[in-house]
């Protein structure tokens, strides 16, 4: 109806149209303002409080000095780092093998296999910890089986509670997440890149080394960052499996609060934990120019 639109044009004055246009531009900002405020409040306020708490002491930095000088606290940082790095290495290597196999092969039921691998990501950490106890705890299936076969004393094969149990639990918790990240990255590679490499004379290993690996480097890095940050902050799994034998940083914070009620020291430890995790995430962004969530 061209006639009608001409009619409306004449009714609208240029000034009205101008104002409508500027309103149109401002509206999205105006509408997102309440949510932005809420977001800032929920993100900013707790962090600000924790920072403020951590700075209260004899001197503003005395809590931080305690965190790094007191061997129990320093050790919990080192243990956390050690577990996070170990699990990150294990899950990245295993995840890469599994993801590469899945990306390169088509077979019946592939989607089902992927779903099964992906399934544990929907389980809470505490359930995974329980699973570890059921398998390799004192009364666990494998521990009992091991003792029955070798005749060793009961519990000789149990390792659910403690360092190794923690390592296994974290690996189990992290592996599917890393595998899925790597899989999506491998599936996005242009197959003609690999074919070109073969065509130019590269064997499978050379093609992987010189073409595939550099191409999925951002994916590997985001897997590494993901694995590392999950493991640095994991709490539920740790609470059950550490069983007082291993002290990781989140558990240490928990016990400082519960045991001594020292919110200032706990805050300082929380800030240290945040800085380490955030540092790793941000260095990813710096190196690869993006976010791990892309």
């Amino acid at each position: 109806m061209p006639g009608q639109s001409v009619g409306t044009e004449t009714v609208e004055s240029p000034r009205l149209r101008q104002r409508l246009r500027s309103l149109e531009l401002a509206l999205p900002f105006a509408l997102s303002l309440p949510l932005a405020a809420l977001y800032l409040l929920f993100l900013g306020l707790p962090i600000a409080t924790v920072v403020q708490l951590s700075l209260q002491g004899e001197t503003p930095w005395s809590n931080y000095v305690t965190v790094f000088t007191e061997s129990a606290y320093r050790n919990s940082i080192l243990t956390s780092l050690q577990i996070a790095v170990t699990v990150t290495v294990i899950t990245t290597v295993l995840g890469l093998i599994v993801a590469y196999f899945l990306a390169k092969n088509e077979f019946r039921g592939k989607r089902i296999v992927i779903s099964i691998i992906n399934f544990p990501t929907s389980l809470p950490g505490i359930l995974i910890a329980w699973g570890i106890i059921v398998l390799v705890g004192r009364q666990g299936v494998f521990s009992l089986l091991g003792s029955a076969i070798t005749g060793a004393r009961s519990g000789a094969f149990a390792f659910a509670l403690g360092y190794w149990g923690l390592l296994l639990g974290y690996t189990y918790f992290t592996l599917p997440r890393v595998t899925m990240t790597l899989l999506s990255s491998l599936e996005n590679i242009n197959p003609e890149l690999e074919e070109t490499a073969y065509n130019l004379g590269a064997n499978r290993l050379q093609t992987f080394r010189y073409v595939v690996l550099p191409e999925i480097m951002p994916g590997i890095a985001s897997g590494v960052v993901l694995a590392f940050s999950i493991n640095m902050v994991a709490f539920g799994t740790a609470l059950l499996l550490a069983a007082g034998k291993v002290s990781v940083l989140p558990l240490q914070i928990y016990s400082v609060v519960l045991g001594f009620g020292d919110y200032n020291l706990a805050s300082a430890m929380a800030i240290v934990l945040t800085v380490i995790t955030l540092g790793v995430i941000m260095s990813y962004g710096y190196v690869f120019g993006g976010s791990i969530y892309e």
């Binding site: 242009n190 070109t196 490499a197 004379g201 064997n203």
Partner: peptide, 30 residues
């Protein structure tokens, strides 16, 4: 790998992690 056939794909498929000359020298390098 050993058919000695040169190939240019529709997607061009250059190796982005290598410079132009490294791309060209990739076959002889392998």
């Amino acid at each position: 790998q050993v058919r000695d056939v040169g190939l240019v794909f529709q997607s061009i498929a250059l190796f982005n992690n290598m410079s132009v000359i490294e791309n060209v020298a990739f076959g002889p390098r392998m």
